[in-house]
Amino acid sequence: MNGPVLEISGLNVDYGLGDAAVRAVRDIDLTLNRGEILGLAGESGSGKSTLAYAITRLLPPPGVITGGHVRYRPAEGGPADRNGDALKAGTGGAGVDILELGPEQLRAFRWQEISLVFQGAMNSLNPVHSVRSQLTDVLVAHRPEMSRAARNERAAELLSLVGIPADRLGSYPHQLSGGMRQRVMIAMALALEPEIVLLDEPTTALDVVMQRQILRQLVRLREELGFSVVFITHDISLLLEFSDRIAIMYGGRIVEQAAAKDIYRDARHPYSHGLLHSFPALHGPRRELTGIPGSPPDLKGMPTGCAFHPRCPKAIAPCSERVPALAPAGPGNRTVACWLHTEHRSGDS
């Protein structure tokens, strides 16, 4: 990888205000490198989608970002918008802090530098507009200098990128299969050649064959175009197959982060281990599916200490008392937030 393209530090997100506020994302520190596919896994309610919407400033009310930074190109100066005005919100080489962009800067930034394929994207297309109209809308908004012919040519090129014939430009969403609609949404996300694409559960409603086809196509596009990907899903088996690195979320926090192969071979956090043993292996000897007992925590009444300790088969005394910090746990830039590891036993978080 060629250094970080996105750096998240100390990010907190609440739903609601005052005493009624619920903290859905807690002190997230995460880095995405250039050309990398970073997987984000966890059960429903762990904060994965909230994190994606916070990064892109698309949090629906009453979601509020209450702290932290989301820096784009953190080691560089920021890019400029189409009018040549600097988007950089900070100074020096800090890049762009997305959380400090004004409305016009943010509008220019989204889709051009970072795009999002929404959860349930298969049903996100407007049913009364053709594929051509919906692909060219983003070009009209962000590239007003393009002629109609150039926009149509770009729309055809985008469909070709995701494996759909250009003659489907005149089709309406109901005339496409679920997999084709999903690929149209991915094509739309790539229209302005962004450096980062966030995929929020992009294949949930598709069968496993179509899931693999779309994800292999996405990997091919990443190799051809060089963009970075944050791939969010509850299906860790998909991440193991297609991601370079995986971060595991639980109760709004990241509890483990490592290369995909290291997570698969030796998950350090008991929650990561539970996720890995919640689906059957396609190769090797049979093994019992143990799953994870209990239910995810209620964000309105989080347990003290480590949020996972009420469900953890390996909980020890400090687990119910203190929150473990996300700290180094071996080679390869692996980090784990767990009191089972000696790196955490010497002090409090």
Rank of each mutant, 00 (worst) to 15 (best):
Y15P: 09
T31N: 07
S44C: 08
R151K: 13
N2E: 15
K261E: 14
W339R: 02
H309T: 00
G77H: 05
L192M: 10
P328V: 06
R151P: 11
E36G: 08
V22P: 03
L135D: 07
G170T: 02
G294V: 01
V323G: 01
N123G: 00
N333A: 15
F231Y: 15
V336C: 15
Y264E: 10
E7I: 06
E157H: 14
L87S: 13
S44F: 02
F242V: 09
A149Q: 08
D207I: 02
G39H: 10
D85A: 15
T66D: 00
I98E: 01
D266M: 04
R322F: 07
P4L: 06
L125T: 00
D19G: 10
S272F: 12
G332W: 10
Y250R: 09
N152H: 06
R212E: 11
M180Y: 06
W339M: 03
H273E: 12
A24I: 12
Q182E: 08
S49A: 09
P310L: 04
H269W: 03
V184G: 00
Q134D: 03
H341L: 14
A86K: 02
L161C: 15
P194N: 10
K300Y: 02
A155W: 03
L30E: 14
I8Q: 11
Q134H: 07
M1Q: 08
R154H: 09
L87N: 10
A21C: 02
N33V: 11
I37C: 12
C306H: 01
P310W: 03
A150W: 09
G291V: 00
S177L: 06
L17R: 09
V117G: 12
V22Q: 13
P202T: 05
E223P: 09
L238S: 04
I98F: 06
D14R: 09
C319Y: 09
Q112A: 14
F308R: 03
E193S: 15
V70G: 10
E43K: 08
E343A: 12
R34N: 15
R132L: 13
H309D: 00
D298A: 09
E224T: 13
V64E: 05
G179Y: 01
L38A: 10
A24Y: 15
L340D: 07
G274W: 06
Y264M: 05
P127N: 00
D81F: 11
V219C: 10
E193N: 15
Y72G: 08
S171E: 02
Q213N: 03
G291T: 02
R311L: 02
R220W: 13
H129G: 01
V208Q: 15
R181L: 01
N12V: 09
Y53Q: 14
E193D: 14
